[in-house]
Amino acid sequence: MSGQYRDYPKHLIRKLPRYYRYLNEQKQLGREYISSNELALLMGISPSQVRQDFNRFLYNGYHGVGYNVSAILEQITELLDLKTKKNTIIIGAGNLGQSLSNYDELKNCGFEIKAFFDINPKLTGAVINGIKVFDMDKIGEYIEAENIVAAILALPTEGTSEIARKISEYGVTMFLNFNPVFFEFERDVFIENVHIDDNLMMLSYKGAGERNDEK
């Protein structure tokens, strides 16, 4: 079923990771079934919206029982293509890149970290968290030899778009970008941007509101 996500509305696909997370938590707690009311409460949406979402990908619950947690987790896993191994590199072997290489959810989602790449010659040849650091000059050769399809951009702003375009030409089609840089590609490339500064600003705003309420 992987690859069929384009047949579904984007707003539904955006919700699937949250559904997956909450359902997986319930499975870890030993739950076999969950009702639309319970799931709606976790998701912060209405029960009718839960039923509508699940009906979109042809999954129906059991009247009076609810949804089979394991079955719907398996369906979401297929829809999001989480079982397919996706060879991945991290561009930038600094603090952020090193932390990401230890993040278990990357492997759980099928992203297998194969190598670091960095412009710092002092890092070339080093092994960090069991992953070797290569010089940027070797990146094209490595991508083609190791069938790399995804890259995590964990480097300073300067030069990010140029590096991304360069490695996309070697066949990388998926990018997880931790840089506040906007760039476009002429070919089919998929980008997920993670703007931590946006979250920090919103956190600051909410904190300010809380402090003002206390005055």
Rank of each mutant, 00 (worst) to 15 (best):
G3D: 04
Q4M: 15
Y5C: 08
Y5K: 15
R6N: 14
K10N: 15
K10D: 15
H11N: 14
L12R: 00
I13M: 12
I13G: 06
R14W: 04
Y19V: 04
Y19S: 09
Y22H: 10
N24M: 13
K27H: 14
K27I: 03
K27A: 04
Q28A: 14
G30T: 12
Y33R: 12
I34S: 08
S35C: 12
E38M: 02
Q49I: 09
R51T: 08
N55L: 12
F57E: 04
L58D: 09
Y62H: 08
H63D: 05
G64Q: 03
V65I: 13
N68C: 10
A71M: 00
I72N: 00
L73Q: 02
L73G: 01
I76W: 00
T77A: 11
E78S: 06
K83V: 04
K83G: 04
T84E: 13
K85D: 05
I89A: 04
G92P: 03
S99L: 15
L100S: 08
S101R: 03
S101A: 15
D104T: 07
K107S: 12
N108H: 09
F111R: 00
E112Q: 11
I113D: 08
I119R: 05
I119Q: 15
K122M: 10
K132M: 03
K132D: 13
V133T: 05
F134C: 05
D135Y: 07
M136W: 00
D137P: 01
D137C: 02
K138Y: 13
K138A: 15
E141H: 12
Y142N: 10
Y142H: 01
Y142W: 11
I143Q: 09
A145F: 04
I148W: 05
A150F: 01
I152Q: 06
I152H: 06
L153F: 02
P156S: 06
T157Y: 01
G159Q: 00
G159K: 02
G159F: 09
E162Y: 07
A164N: 07
Y170W: 08
Y170V: 04
V172F: 00
V172H: 08
T173E: 15
L176A: 08
N177K: 02
N177V: 15
N179Q: 14
N179F: 04
V181N: 13
F182S: 09
F183E: 11
R187P: 08
V189F: 07
F190H: 02
I191G: 04
V194S: 12
I196P: 00
N199F: 02
L200R: 12
M201V: 09
M201A: 14
M201Q: 13
M202S: 05
S204R: 09
G209V: 12
E210R: 13
N212C: 13
